[in-house]
Computed example of a mutant assay.
Amino acid sequence: MRGEVMRGQLGDTDLRLLRIFRKVVECGGFSAAEIELNISRSAISMAMSDLETRLGLKLCQRGAMQMLAAAEGFRTRINGLHAWLKGELNIGITDNLVTMPEMHITDALSALKGHGPEVMINIRMIPPNEIERAVLDGRLHTGVIPTLKTLPGLEYRSLYEETSCLYCARGHVLFREPRAGDTLARGRPVGEEEIRQHDAVLPAYAQTPAIKALHEPLKAAASATDREGIAFLVLSGRYLGYLPTHYAERWVRDGQMQALSPVANSYVTYYSAITRKSRRQAKPARRAQAARESKP
């Protein structure tokens, strides 16, 4: 009932209102949240007013979001006492890992669903630094990110190695049409000085010092916040750019992309699964982790 004040415990209505508030915060306002939530702005405003009334205080973004994470975590832990898995598993994953041949996240999710059909799995594709923050403050139970640095509040479990190479696309002056019997489809030798002369797209996300050093000789003419953005620009035929080999494979196979001196222009990124330290994992998260670790 509208105007009812909570009396010492959070019910489903309170959690629903807190989730709406969380989405407003994540989207940066009512307008963007209106699209994400698929409800009107007036309905969102009324929900926020109801939430303030029920809480008996003005909303503080960080405090309310921590309250929601704690409440959902408590409910998940209580459900975890039962033999049958219930609750939520909130996962953050870096973009464009699904094409990695060694990727076993799907196997872990399948095993989890088999053990707990009622588990609500929520996956968010977001940048690594946001995944780290969300795991630290409890909004995510686990995440998969490149291992660029280690934070003291997180546990890291090694998962994969990912190789990236420098690519150009059909239409670029450095692209060479392969002939019968040659290996240009897999890469062609190009001198470093020649590469420096052509526009390149650089990543606008965190990289290790070694990977940054490999990008420094390139002629920076564009940037992208993720690998898909880099692929868009490379496929324009106007830019060079580094992409994971497993991600570029579809275009290489179709003759749309070509690696440039792949031995000299390549690097390896290491990926880890992260969880928060000093917090007993929810049962669905532990089950998913066990399924991951059982894979070779």
Rank of each mutant, 00 (worst) to 15 (best):
residue 273 A to S: 11
residue 108 A to I: 03
residue 46 M to H: 11
residue 186 R to C: 06
residue 92 G to D: 05
residue 52 E to P: 01
residue 36 E to T: 15
residue 83 A to W: 11
residue 217 P to L: 01
residue 65 M to Q: 12
residue 16 R to K: 15
residue 279 R to N: 04
residue 140 L to D: 02
residue 243 L to F: 01
residue 251 W to C: 01
residue 148 L to H: 05
residue 185 A to T: 08
residue 234 V to L: 03
residue 126 I to M: 13
residue 117 P to G: 06
residue 296 P to G: 04
residue 199 D to M: 10
residue 31 S to W: 05
residue 259 A to T: 01
residue 288 A to D: 02
residue 39 I to Y: 03
residue 177 E to V: 04
residue 195 I to K: 09
residue 216 E to M: 10
residue 41 R to Y: 03
residue 131 I to H: 06
residue 275 T to H: 09
residue 47 A to F: 10
residue 138 G to L: 08
residue 40 S to T: 15
residue 263 V to H: 11
residue 175 F to I: 02
residue 125 M to V: 15
residue 99 T to Y: 11
residue 270 Y to V: 08
residue 156 Y to D: 08
residue 70 A to L: 12
residue 49 S to C: 02
residue 84 W to Y: 10
residue 182 D to Q: 12
residue 56 G to N: 12
residue 232 F to C: 10
residue 32 A to R: 07
residue 272 S to G: 03
residue 214 L to I: 14
residue 80 G to I: 01
residue 1 M to P: 05
residue 269 T to M: 13
residue 170 R to D: 09
residue 131 I to N: 08
residue 22 R to G: 05
residue 230 I to Q: 04
residue 264 A to Q: 14
residue 200 A to N: 07
residue 36 E to S: 14
residue 140 L to C: 12
residue 173 V to N: 01
residue 44 I to S: 05
residue 210 A to P: 00
residue 62 R to E: 15
residue 151 L to F: 10
residue 274 I to F: 09
residue 287 R to N: 01
residue 181 G to P: 05
residue 170 R to W: 06
residue 181 G to T: 09
residue 179 R to L: 12
residue 242 Y to S: 03
residue 170 R to H: 09
residue 32 A to K: 11
residue 256 Q to V: 00
residue 3 G to N: 11
residue 181 G to H: 04
residue 242 Y to K: 02
residue 260 L to P: 05
residue 64 A to I: 04
residue 176 R to Q: 14
residue 145 I to S: 06
residue 120 M to G: 00
residue 219 K to S: 13
residue 133 R to M: 11
residue 50 D to R: 03
residue 248 A to K: 05
residue 220 A to N: 09
residue 143 G to L: 01
residue 168 C to F: 10
residue 59 L to G: 03
residue 274 I to H: 02
residue 257 M to H: 07
residue 54 R to Y: 07
residue 200 A to I: 09
residue 82 H to L: 10
residue 96 N to Q: 14
residue 134 A to D: 11
residue 143 G to S: 03
residue 290 A to L: 12
residue 171 G to L: 07
residue 269 T to Y: 00
residue 184 L to F: 15
residue 73 G to K: 11
residue 18 L to R: 03
residue 106 T to Q: 13
residue 279 R to G: 00
residue 185 A to C: 07
residue 17 L to D: 03
residue 227 R to Q: 13
residue 48 M to P: 00
residue 237 G to M: 04
residue 214 L to E: 08
residue 3 G to V: 02
residue 174 L to W: 11
residue 263 V to F: 05
residue 150 T to K: 15
residue 176 R to K: 14
residue 111 A to P: 04
residue 13 T to H: 07
residue 204 A to G: 09
residue 233 L to V: 01
residue 163 T to Y: 11
residue 24 V to Q: 02
residue 189 P to K: 10
residue 32 A to Q: 13
residue 238 R to T: 07
residue 115 H to A: 14
residue 18 L to E: 05
residue 236 S to R: 09
residue 94 T to N: 04
residue 165 C to V: 08
residue 82 H to A: 14
residue 21 F to A: 09
residue 193 E to Q: 15
residue 216 E to N: 04
residue 181 G to R: 05
residue 50 D to H: 07
residue 114 G to C: 06
residue 59 L to E: 06
